[in-house]
């Protein structure tokens, strides 16, 4: 049997809002490590990795590892049936082809049962050690930059140097360049921009995906953007001390 109880149910709603437009179907893996997911968008250009650790739940019981295939749009529909301040319990019996969502508020409770699906998924081990540039910045600022740039062009070039991180695009009406320099705010660390770099790195990515990733902005005040030496982009939002949601994006390369 698998059962988890999340007092701050709105967190799970925000997680679904962050990924449901990027990924259609995904296997939620339940194990002693936590409630996790790894899935790709239909074009296989982006990969999402989610982890919610057991200690972040009021109750977490996982008798054996299970994988629950869910359609994220349907899961989102069910989560929207619960109130924002509701406590959410998710339960699945071993071998069952359904999962139950229970919403509790001081005024009452509601149960929804959703059919599970069989989903073939491809797991990738992400090698974080090849990371050569890491930028931590306010998530709202990153969201604003992606939105602004997508009004000009389709592709963003992200360049990290000693000068800072530069986001550039080009379109029919002209070009745009936005530079963020390191800026440490001791009083409000969440408003800081921190750049760690072992070597300058530059690569280009479709803005459509970047804008999709920023749907996770309500989960965290800060975002961490990493580029590996092989030019894989990782965009990470931490989830209130209980885990993270990471988006990985493959680069555009020259012909």
């Amino acid at each position: 049997m698998f059962e988890l109880r999340l007092v701050q149910g709105s967190l799970l709603k925000k997680v679904l809002e962050a990924i449901k437009d990027l990924v259609n179907d995904a296997n939620f893996d339940c194990s002693a490590t936590g409630f996790s997911l790894q899935a790709m968008d239909p074009s296989h250009v982006a990969l999402v990795a989610l982890l919610l650790r057991p200690d972040g739940f009021e109750h977490y019981r996982c008798d054996r590892n299970i994988s629950m295939g869910m359609n994220l749009n349907n899961m989102s529909k069910i989560l929207k049936c619960g109130g924002n301040d509701d406590i959410i319990t998710i339960r699945a019996d071993d071998g069952s082809d359904t999962v139950t969502f229970m919403f509790e508020s001081p005024n009452g409770s509601a149960n929804f049962e959703m059919n599970l699906m069989d989903i073939d998924s491809e797991h990738h081990g992400i090698d974080e050690s090849k990371c050569c540039a890491v930028v931590r910045m306010p998530s709202s600022e990153f969201q604003r930059i992606c939105k602004v740039l997508s009004s000009i062009g389709d592709t963003v070039v992200i360049s990290v140097t000693n000068e800072g991180v530069q986001f550039s695009t080009r379109g029919d009406i002209g070009t745009a360049n936005i530079v963020c320099r390191q800026n440490i705010n001791v009083d409000k660390p969440e408003e800081s921009t921190v750049i760690e770099m072992s070597q300058p790195v530059s690569s280009q990515f479709p803005l459509r995906y970047m804008n999709s990733f920023t749907k996770a902005t309500p989960l965290s005040n800060t975002v961490t953007i990493s580029l590996t030496s092989e030019l894989l982009l990782a965009v990470e939002y931490t989830i209130a001390e209980m885990g993270y949601i990471r988006f990985y994006l493959a680069p555009k390369i020259e012909d």
Partner: peptide, 14 residues
Amino acid sequence: KGVQLSITEFYRSA
């Protein structure tokens, strides 16, 4: 303007 790699292609080429 370049070719977009998929995650699978990226890991194959990396």
